[in-house]
Nucleic acid binder design. Structure first.
Lengths: 342, 342
DNA sequence: CGTTAGCACTCTAATATGCCGAGTGCTAAC
DNA sequence: GTTAGCACTCGGCATATTAGAGTGCTAACG
């Protein structure tokens, strides 16, 4: 299934030419731009062969060639040069991300914003799930006579709060007792283990205090549930409408897809190693057959923590998009890691 | 500026006919549908007069009539029958809202969802703002070596948190000092008064501590900003793409508008009494010249608490939309009131 | 004076026609 | 294997034609 070197060059030139212009690429254009040493007829022969083999297709007999899905795939896997981004871009991304480096959520929100800005497509990110997280500390802050806030600080640096109401008047002594009891009990525990049955047994074990615990424990449990699930943020939806080769209909389908967190989550969780590129039908979703998706993950302390992705048209600038995406994921991961470390 | 009764009938019929069909309405169509007692020529005369007076316009000489902005306005103000919604709709709305009556945010989120569903346009809502709120207390919770969380407790019972990072290692003594200093300073203060210049003078007054204060003060300020501003939720953006008379370009502009919370906020805060309808240019925004907006508010304990709105094309079904909107706002207000009371 | 019938007129949308040119595939020569 | 040459294809654009919907105007009517 290998191609001769020149055919690879032709394929690469067609893909990049088509990505750049949006117009089917003809043999003469290629000759002028790239292959002054061979004639257009030779290129025509090569293109004909690439068409037979399924890497290119023609919109109609007298038009130039357009990459097929298979052509894009060959390009992405074997022809695309993964060269450096320009320092202007990397600096820009870094600058924007550092500005909002206060919480993981905001870093990822900003990541999608800056990505959609520099790539011109839509961007998605999922915040770190608390799957492997443990309880670092629990704190309580009184907010009213009978209301207080549980603050759950996770080993990952994530902080979740939950307001709760008690049916007794709260005193600082009571909060102190809760604090001591729960910290000695929960510190270091995996979030996933704080479940309904677990808090029931805990409550029971508190003897005379048991009466006062339920609302407190439920608050902590809900905070930990919140921390467990990863949030999804989307930016750049409006970019989809400006994509030149996406019909209104297809754009509507893509936007509908992006407005369903459930759909997005199912797409992001198809975790491969490294960066995955799904082209057209490879997305496996009817509503994304005219779209391509690039998914990568960011790491915290060397562990995959969450995903960042781009959603655009099949004719997107894979080289640039992959570059920006991976760079942003890298920076975002580092920033979140710093946040956690401190 | 009054019209004869028949001309009003003609105007009403044109508006409703055009809203229903999307096609310019001709004299014969009107005669067949509504005015079997007068001839089409008479209607033509009336339409010609309404055109001269600016209530109708013609896409071109040989086409039927289409309502002008002024025509829509006259219709909305004087001709539209504000009759009851069908019980099927009201029951449906009520059922959906009651399902998610746990927090004000969720009630309003659901309101926009159900509204965009039943009206086929986009919907916006703002949560109650903290305008009249004061600072009750400020608390700090350490979350890491160099990170902490400011907890702002408002007189209305609203609680906002903000994580921040310091460029020094945080000790519990430091937090205690912040706590004392800021509580004596801020307790009872209106949220609106915690501004950039204010915190600068405060920071300056702290003498040798001044170096350590900025990040803390900024966190408190941002928390109070959060508490002050009402959140905005949007649903049904994808509906905009299905609006038949909105060009892709106009749809993109509307979606861009909807993705900017700031823009939305400025639109919602043009508070009139009761329900306001802005048709086309009346929105006062270039990007919404092809759109219409209907804004109403919901009340808690008889006080205006926030806004709910619809955004659609100029040719929207004002009667149905206004009905659904007002009904939903009513129910949402009641549900939130119940929540606050408890 | 308001209403009506009749009719010529206007303009769009849909369909047909012809032409240009980009780009191809094929063949024969190198 | 490569190249030049050439006939051929087909979409896109501009132009012409037609059908039909709807109008405005005029003259007649009660």
């Amino acid at each position: 299934m290998d191609l001769t070197q020149r055919k690879e060059q032709v394929l690469k030139a067609v893909v990049e030419g088509y990505i750049a212009s949006g117009e089917p690429v003809g043999s003469k254009t290629l000759q002028n731009d790239l292959f002054s040493d061979v004639s257009s007829a030779t290129i025509r022969n090569d293109m004909a062969d690439l068409t037979v083999k399924g890497y290119l297709s023609q919109p109609h007999t007298s038009a130039g060639r357009v990459p097929s899905q298979r052509g894009y795939r060959y390009y992405v896997e074997r022809l695309m040069s993964r060269n450096k981004l320009s320092p202007r871009i990397t600096e820009y991304i870094e600058e924007k991300l550092i500005q909002s480096a206060d919480t993981p959520e905001n870093i990822l929100k900003k990541s999608t914003q800056v990505l959609s800005e520099v790539t011109g497509v839509a961007s998605i990110a999922s915040t770190p799930s608390g799957e492997r997280a443990r309880v670092h500390k629990v704190r309580f802050v009184q907010t009213g006579r009978q209301t207080a806030m549980a603050v759950l600080i996770c080993s990952t640096g994530m902080v979740k709060t939950k307001l709760f109401r008690c049916d007794f008047v709260i005193t600082s002594e009571a909060l102190n007792i809760f604090d001591k009891a729960l910290n000695s009990l929960l510190s270091g525990m995996e979030l996933a283990r704080i479940t309904q049955p677990f808090i029931q047994t805990v409550a029971a074990s508190f003897g005379e205090m048991a009466l006062y615990m339920p609302s407190v424990l439920i608050a902590v449990m809900e905070a930990s549930k919140e921390a467990l699930k990863s949030e999804i943020t989307v930016s750049g939806q409006t970019n989809i409408l400006s994509l030149p080769d996406i019909s209104v209909n297809a754009a509507a389908q893509m936007l509908r897809f992006l407005s369903s967190k459930r759909e997005i989550a199912s797409l992001l969780c198809e975790k491969p190693n490294g960066t995955a590129v799904y082209i057209g039908e490879e997305t496996g979703r009817q509503e994304l057959y005219q779209s391509s998706v690039i998914i990568t993950h960011y790491e915290i302390s060397g562990q995959t923590a969450g995903e960042i992705a781009l959603l655009g048209s099949v004719r997107m600038d894979y080289k640039n998009c992959i570059g920006c995406l991976e760079y942003t994921a890298d920076v975002a991961g580092q920033l979140i890691e710093q946040l956690v470390a401190s």
